[in-house]
């Protein structure tokens, strides 16, 4: 914790992420306009006093949509990672602890999933499942799964030969107790580091899927889908494209800095 406070970058990044969370939670109170209310008297208006970040192609307030869009992005950052963790911890424990053909099968499947590039898995899954924010999150979670699974299993393999695990086994602890009480607590740090970096990747992946029309469906606001519409009005209304991208960039950058700092603080190999 002290090392944490000594890193100004990590401190600023924590603040930025906390601010995004606060904005997402308080969206109904912070947004000056209804994010899906169209106003055809105010189409593609440049930033002004009435609309601080301007309006989009159907007269919706860009600032309000950016504020509400934080919900979709943060959800899409956290839920896929939670999904990947929930599946990979028990499977990784099973694979690493049991070994044998179970381990072989799980690892070959993991290799196969890793062979397909991340976003291509997510796009293909979203395509076959049908476009929606829920399916996009599911697709991102599945695409992120093999990395977590491999990490969880690798950690279990390393921990299995530790002396305190041997000691627990010699004392006659059951397999479930060894896995749960002795191995699992030591898996938390590497999985936490991976999670924080994957949240950043998932935010970008959701924006990408929504940009392609495979994530959040209109008129619900999402930073990615805002950019999709924005591209068509680039020469007349560049502000529609500028702000959603800037917020994605800031959030992802803050999450990456946080991930790096966590790794430096928790992983003895760095720092």
């Amino acid at each position: 914790m002290r090392r944490w406070l000594r890193r100004p970058a990590a401190l600023i990044a924590s603040g930025v992420v906390a601010a995004f969370v606060a904005v997402a939670l308080a969206a109904p109170h912070l947004a000056p306009y209804d994010p899906i209310a169209t106003d055809f008297r105010a189409v593609r208006k440049a930033p002004s006093g009435a609309h601080v970040l301007g309006t989009d192609e159907v007269g919706r307030d860009v600032l309000s949509r950016v504020i509400w869009g934080a919900r979709a992005s943060l959800l899409a950052g956290v839920i896929p990672v939670a999904l990947a963790l929930t599946v990979s911890i028990p499977l990784g424990l099973l694979s690493g602890y049991a070994g044998g053909w179970i381990d072989g099968l799980i690892m070959r499947l993991t290799d196969a999933m890793l062979a397909i590039p991340f976003l291509i898995v997510a796009i293909a899954l979203a395509a076959f499942l049908g476009p929606s924010l829920t399916n996009a999150m599911l697709a991102i979670g599945i695409a992120a799964l093999p990395t977590f699974l491999r990490l969880a299993r690798g950690t279990v393999l390393a921990l299995k030969t530790e002396e305190y695990v041997e000691a627990a086994r010699a004392l006659g602890c059951s397999h479930v107790r060894i896995a749960g009480r002795h191995i699992f607590p030591n898996m938390v740090a590497p999985l936490l580091i991976q999670s924080s970096l994957t949240v950043a990747a998932a935010v970008i992946a959701e924006a990408s899927l929504s940009f392609l029309g495979l994530g959040q469906q209109p008129p619900a606001p999402s930073w990615g889908s805002m950019l999709n519409a924005a591209q068509r009005y680039l020469s007349q209304a560049p502000w529609i494209a500028l702000y959603p991208g800037l917020v994605i960039f800031s959030l992802v950058m803050a999450l990456n800095v946080l991930g790096d700092a966590l790794r430096d603080a928790l992983d003895p190999r760095y720092g």
Partner: peptide
């Protein structure tokens, strides 16, 4: 390097089109 890793590339593409083409 960190910015390169964090920027959404499709947005960077749109911004570069805005600057260099438009």
């Amino acid at each position: 390097a960190l910015s390169g890793l964090s920027v959404p590339h499709f947005w960077l593409g749109i911004m570069l089109i805005l600057l260099f083409a438009v």
